[in-house]
Design a protein around this nucleic acid. Structure first.
Length: 278
DNA sequence: CGTTTTTGACCGGCGC
DNA sequence: GCGCCGGTCAAAAACG
């Protein structure tokens, strides 16, 4: 599919601002590992050094925050452009010949959106083609698609998006040997949102989640930071802003954890810490 | 024991 | 009208 143009979510962070790899001087090492850790060798540090370090980290933090807001802004702009583009395309292609099943093919306004949080997606569902049958009036729910890359070994059809879902069905469809799972939002009984999850035919490591409708409640994970219904996806205690699509956050996390540089830094940090303990 | 998942049955739309 | 197909229901099983 041409849709699988993956956003490179690697943050390209300056993870080793003080070159951990080359012969790590003791003093640098201790500085690195004393950040956020229980104290050790603190007495060797002059307060001015620490203050300088704090300044540096604060500045970097600020810079990252700015970058993030810019990325979000760009994302929203791009998404709006895409919406507009697809809407125009749809207007052009309203040909009476395409009288297929109304399923997949008809309502793909927002196909290929990476992590569209249907919460605030721009309403492009002006009733362009939904005036045929009275039945479709009830289905003017917004439809969006989200592509999520998973571990190849992961056979579950679980897409973490911050909401709580209850599975109510599973089917093997004709065009795809992988079963399609049907979910309803179980957080609020009145919430009309449904979601279908199926592996991509092209790439089985990719889950395609199709969302229908809009949630009429906040994300479950924002309300139950510590409640233990293990199934839902409370990613630590970090609340994700509704402005930042959860899938993007997931991808960034994946990028980080698979980034060799990040891993190397982590390994260095852990081993360095262990060394200091011994 | 309450909630969620599983899974076969059922329903309705669509094409022939 | 019939069969196919996607979507949903609901009873039973599994789970915590």
């Amino acid at each position: 599919m041409a849709c699988s143009s993956w956003i490179n979510t690697s943050l390209d962070l300056n993870i080793n601002p003080r070159r951990v790899h080359e012969e790590v001087p003791k003093e640098v090492e201790s500085k690195l590992f004393s950040l956020g850790m229980p104290k050790f060798n603190v007495e060797e540090e002059s307060t001015s050094d620490l203050e300088e370090e704090l300044k540096r980290v604060t500045a970097e933090n600020k810079k990252l925050s700015e970058m993030l807001s810019v990325v979000c802004e760009n994302y929203n702009t791009l998404r709006n452009h895409l919406m507009e583009y697809m809407r125009k395309n749809n207007e052009k292609e309203v040909s009476p010949t395409s009288k297929k099943r109304k399923s997949e093919s008809s309502n793909n306004n927002s196909t290929c959106l990476m992590g569209t949080n249907n919460g605030n997606s721009e309403s492009s569902s002006t009733d362009e083609e939904s005036c045929k049958k009275p039945r479709e009036e009830t289905i003017k729910a917004k439809i969006s698609r989200v592509y999520v890359r998973t571990e190849a070994s992961d056979t579950s059809l679980i897409v973490k998006d911050g909401y709580q879902w209850r599975k109510y069905g599973q089917k093997v469809t004709r065009d795809n040997p992988c079963p399609r799972a049907y979910f309803k939002c179980s957080f609020a009984p009145s919430c009309p949102v449904k979601k279908k999850v199926q592996r991509s035919v092209d790439d089985q490591s990719v889950l395609v989640a199709t969302y229908e409708g809009e949630h009429n409640h906040p994300q479950a994970s924002q309300m139950e930071a510590t409640s233990g219904s293990g199934r839902s996806v409370a990613l630590g205690s970090v609340p994700y802003s509704p402005k930042v699509p959860q899938v993007l956050v997931e991808q960034m996390a994946t990028s980080l954890t698979t980034d060799p540089n990040f891993r190397a830094a982590l390994v260095a940090a852990i081993s360095g810490r262990l060394l200091h303990k011994n």
